[in-house]
């Protein structure tokens, strides 16, 4: 990872060390071309991401029922939307299951991602075929894989229940995976993990490849076995990469929408109503834009805490 990241930036900094004596205005003038180059990208990000973010903050302080705005300007109601949400038991339930969902997905994704990366780092005939197979779940569009898994989980004719009853678990013969609160939650976790593992495994594999063989050879001479090499060399040397991947996965899984929406729509009976779905439904199901924006801002604040952590980690890794 270190090797890779610094590779991305090599050649920077040396030819262009900034002369210390130049004034800020002079620097801006000298680099005026740079601003032209980045202008279109920055305008886009500003207009379509940052301005809407500011608008979302404003809307979150308004009573904004979308059918009303034909008649009157939505009035400011201060923090009332936030107060409503904080006293809404569904919000607390959603927050709790979103955190559990995220925790389970990240833990399982990292565990399997690491195991697969270690497997693919071994030398064995046929490794390339295994590497390509591992990528397949990543390639399938999220909506397509959600529908596919719904078919796999089908209570009567699904292949999963067939396999489970084949190996002697007869009680699963007609088990309605997505129609029961507890199992629906785990069923979606399995799908999300299935689709997230390839990226994590490939990233960790790239990291493992940067560890020089000599380090392992030296450890072997000292009598280290497979387990010691993994826990005492591989994992510590990839610590930064692993942390970054954990933070990234946490942010992604916390925002989960597609798989949950297609597979359960937050059901049965609201039991898988994660924050991402709850916020969207508040906005486009109940048309309560003010309340939904307040919910979105709470999501945003939680994600930003993790994002800041992520950026600080990256900053430690890279020189810009």
């Amino acid at each position: 990872m270190q090797k890779q990241v610094s590779g991305l930036n090599k050649g920077m900094g040396r030819a262009y060390a900034r002369p210390a004596s130049k004034s800020l205005l002079g620097e801006i003038k000298k680099n005026s071309m740079a601003y032209l180059f980045i202008l279109p990208a920055m305008v886009g990000i500003f207009a379509v991401i940052l301005v809407p973010l500011a608008q979302a903050i404003i809307i979150s302080f308004k009573r904004y029922y979308i059918l009303d705005i034909l008649r009157e300007d939505p009035p400011f109601i201060g923090l009332a939307n936030y107060a409503t949400i904080l006293s809404d038991p569904q919000f607390w339930y959603s927050l709790r299951i979103t955190i559990w969902f995220t925790f389970a997905c990240v833990a399982l994704t990292m565990l399997f991602g690491l195991l697969i990366a270690i497997l693919l780092d071994q030398d064995f005939p046929g490794r390339d075929i295994v590497t390509v197979s591992v990528l397949v779940p990543w390639v399938i569009p999220r909506v397509a894989s959600s529908i596919l898994w719904k078919w796999i989980y089908d209570d009567q004719f699904g292949i999963l229940n067939y396999m489970l009853s084949k190996i002697g678990l007869k009680s699963f013969a007609n088990f309605p995976w997505l129609a029961k609160a507890g199992s629906a939650f785990w069923a979606v976790i399995i799908v999300v993990v299935w689709q997230s593992v390839p990226f994590i495994a490939v990233s960790l594999l790239a990291g493992l490849r940067t560890i020089p063989d000599e380090v392992y050879e030296a450890a072997e001479i000292d009598g280290a076995g497979f387990w010691q090499k993994t826990t005492l060399i591989s994992i510590p040397m990839l610590r930064n990469l692993i942390t970054i991947l954990i933070v990234m996965s946490t942010i992604w899984d916390f925002k989960v929408f597609d798989q949950m929406f297609v597979m359960t729509e937050g059901g049965p009976a609201g039991s898988t109503m994660v924050l991402g779905i709850y916020t969207w439904m508040m906005a486009f199901g109940r048309l309560q834009m003010g309340l939904a924006s307040a919910l979105a801002m709470i999501m945003f604040a939680l994600v930003m805490i993790v994002t800041i952590l992520y950026l600080r980690l990256l900053m430690r890794e890279e020189t810009f």
């Binding site: 991401i49 940052l50 809407p52 973010l53 925002k255 906005a283 486009f284 939904a292 924006s293 950026l311």
Partner: peptide
């Protein structure tokens, strides 16, 4: 840093004002 940070925004934050626009 902004470019890196913006990627992490939950789309739910942006979608409401963007829908209105």
């Amino acid at each position: 840093i902004m470019i890196l940070g913006v990627q992490m925004f939950p789309s739910q934050v942006i979608i409401i004002p963007l829908f209105i626009v």
